[in-house]
Design a protein around this nucleic acid. Structure first.
Lengths: 202, 202
DNA sequence: TGTACATCAGTGAACGCGCGTTCACTGATGTAC
DNA sequence: TGTACATCAGTGAACGCGCGTTCACTGATGTAC
């Protein structure tokens, strides 16, 4: 049986993650502050450290959820186009990625903020979440290029993801670029269809 | 005539930028600290604020130099391949960008660190530097697609830059991706040649 | 050339902020007998 | 069921750090006459 203590522990942990998620969705990683979280959760600051090693761990947990939401968002978009060709599936995914980033800018940013700053290792489940996401891309890619060796698929997957990521990044960095959203979509579609065309000719 | 005071002022300003540049090249924006800079420059902390509004201004100044170095690096690479086709020129530029980022990771990172964090407007000359860089890409692009309207060239330029930027970003983010450098180069060449092929068919 | 005054570079100790994290203490829950 | 003891969640004031920036003061340089 799970003791009452254990239950309260887990309830607090979950509550803090919930609150942290709300904050990160609203304003990104800067909104994660021990005192404020404790205040909202109705516990003492110290209690947080009873349940997490540090705030970083909490952010990772929220990032895990963000990854899941992102994955779901992409998958739903794909599901909405059941008859799309592999290339079109890739385009749909790219556009879904853009859409998610636009709707969830602070949370999406936090995904990368953390990576950049921390030097310690990323936990197992975090990497798994990440590669599951990349796996979504690998699927249609493989369908499109059945002959391609797995190592190339692996590489290509990451390359495509990065390209789209770069374009999205640009799109949300208003100050310098000022590229309207519709144009961004065109750009994503353009790049992906072009790359899907006949890669083996290279 | 320029007074002695004015001269000293400018000398200090330059000296601080020089020292700041060394620091940013070595370790990025985190290495810019008022006390340490003052110590190295042989002046008081307060003197810095006599010559800059704040440290941000100093970083911008260093970023200006980094932009210039980057532009030079890319141009030299292009100059080394005088007979390259427009598409090949674009590939050469992409690879030069990767190379620069690899050789100058902290300084290159600082270019983007600053943008992200500050809310205030980017100064005129900074934007000019940026668009001059983008102009390098626009050249061969226009050559490759003489029919394309300027607005599309503008868009395409930014799209290409972003894609390559995304891939480079991925390449330097070792932890998650682990894509070897040679593969990155292949990926850049692949994307650019594919995009250059026959865009008007889309 | 010399004197009086004004300006502003130069100084560095001190201010202020924002936080993450710790730690000695307390009190509720769980366990042993 | 009851009692004594142990454990560990929960507390929040205080520690510690790292900095950017300011500010009252001083002294060198420049200007006016």
């Amino acid at each position: 049986m799970v003791g009452k203590v254990q239950q309260k522990r887990e309830a607090l942990r979950r509550k803090l993650i919930d609150l942290g998620e709300v904050r990160i969705i609203a304003g990104g990683i800067d909104q994660i502050k021990a005192r404020e979280l404790a205040g909202e959760a109705g516990c003492a600051v110290g209690a947080i450290y009873n349940v997490f090693d540090d705030l970083n761990e909490l952010v990772m947990e929220v990032n895990g959820r963000t990854f899941k939401r992102l994955g779901k968002h992409v998958q739903e978009a794909v599901r909405a186009h059941p008859d799309a060709s592999p290339v079109d599936v890739m385009i749909v995914m790219g556009l879904a990625y853009l859409d998610f980033a636009q709707q969830n800018t602070p949370a999406w940013r936090t995904l990368f903020d953390l990576e950049m700053s921390t030097d310690q290792d990323v936990p197992e489940w975090y990497l798994a979440e990440m590669s599951q996401l990349l796996g979504l891309i690998a699927g249609p890619l493989k369908q499109n290029f059945p002959e391609m060796p797995d190592s190339d698929i692996h590489l290509m997957t990451r390359g495509l993801f990065s390209s789209i990521h770069g374009i999205v990044l640009l799109g949300l960095e208003k100050r310098i670029s000022a590229v309207p959203a519709a144009e961004l979509e065109r750009m994503i579609a353009l790049i992906l269809s072009r790359l899907g065309a006949s890669i083996d000719k290279i």
